[in-house]
Design a protein around this nucleic acid. Structure first.
Lengths: 212, 212
DNA sequence: GCTTTAATGTAAACTCCCTTAACATGAGTT
DNA sequence: AACTCATGTTAAGGGAGTTTACATTAAAGC
């Protein structure tokens, strides 16, 4: 009967890739009940192994969460990079696409997003996690650098500040309005529209010309 | 010995105001270990009562958290209102003061803030909670209305949109950079400076004149 | 005073989680 | 074919949280 049994028979004694399976399980559980809504044992159960098995791969629950977050930052970076597309077709458009990619990630991968930003993990729990987060932010930073370069020399804001502003805007909107059912406050506009209009106003404030 | 015992002797069998005491205890615990970092029993222990006592006042842990959040929204509203000060000395200044008040609240009352925005509570778990949150947002909305009215009739953005933008900016910054040791990413500027500059740029983008 | 009622306390049953130790399996190596 | 290491499993101890049932105290009303 039970799936687990059949899976087990199919897979034999060894799972094959328990580490990844645990991360997957954690993602599922986070999506359902939040980063605090599951235990180490739950993850093991979901992956179809005994409660002791996870200890072969993660020191504790926090280490598992940290790996979910790290993996999340990697995919996040990839998604933002795709949005940026090396500044094509033009920096302004590409910059907006980064914003869209940000929201898309939060919406499509709420579990990763929660592990990354809402799990209460110390940002520098380990060097890998920190590095992954920094690389993701680096995409914003690169984009801001390119955009700033479009302005006349005397009117350039600090690119770091600008990238922090954009991060805060995107995170604020994603966090408050951006998840399917989490922060579901009824709104007359979508999170995407909200961010797009906000970025437009912000960039206009910096002196960027509006596209036709 | 132990405090608890002396307190107990002092207060007698009845606590007197256990409900509030539990909310206080929850705030302490949230401040220390996050909204997920304590149990119902912990709260009882902190308040110096038995593990069963809280059930007389809250159905479960979530109900307790919801009350912390509700109380938080009330104080939040009060703090934002004070910042707004009925639009004095002038709407633009007052609007910036609302932003400062927002960050100040997140910094001074991290426990309330976490319960309100990072506890994973459904925003409309109960009508009271929802109403308190709406009233707090109402302050932003009121301020945005007043500001928008300063612009010439043809250039007025929707005040609701504007208030959502501001909320997102403030929340984004508070959430990412605004708590003493939580999201501690080393930055060359304070959260306050970051929000102030961001609002300045944003308002400039809307066509507000810069103050001298 | 006596009774009633609300507010806690205590105790105990139940469940679940964490963690480690000891043993089992199996895949690749020699 | 035997060896070995990584990976899982069982089993067991120790804690802790939840929840209910029942006892106790304080305060208020008759």
């Amino acid at each position: 009967m039970s799936w687990k049994r059949r899976e087990r028979e199919a897979r034999g004694y060894h799972h094959g890739n328990l580490r990844e399976a645990l991360i997957q399980a954690a993602r599922e559980l986070i999506k359902e009940k939040g980063p605090a809504g599951f235990t180490f044992a739950d993850a093991a159960r979901s992956a179809g192994v005994s409660a002791a098995a996870p200890y072969r791969h993660f020191r504790d629950r926090e280490a598992l969460l940290a790996d979910v977050a790290r993996e999340g930052f990697q995919r996040f970076e990839a998604m933002l990079s795709t949005g940026w597309a090396n500044g094509k077709p033009d920096a302004l458009t590409a910059f907006n696409n980064v914003g869209k990619a940000y929201l898309a990630f939060a919406r499509v991968e709420p579990a990763y997003y929660a592990a990354m930003f809402e799990s209460g993990l110390p940002p520098d729990l380990n060097a890998d996690l920190r590095a992954a987060a920094d690389r993701a932010f680096g995409v914003l930073r690169t984009a801001a650098d390119a955009l700033v370069a479009l302005l006349p020399a005397g009117k350039r804001p600090p690119a770091l500040m600008m990238s922090l502003h954009v991060w805060a805007m995107a995170h604020g909107i994603a966090s408050l309005f951006g998840r399917g059912d989490a922060g579901r406050r009824a709104l007359p506009m979508t999170a995407e529209e909200l961010l797009e209009s906000q970025m437009l106003i912000y960039l206009q404030g910096l002196g960027f010309p509006q596209k036709a």
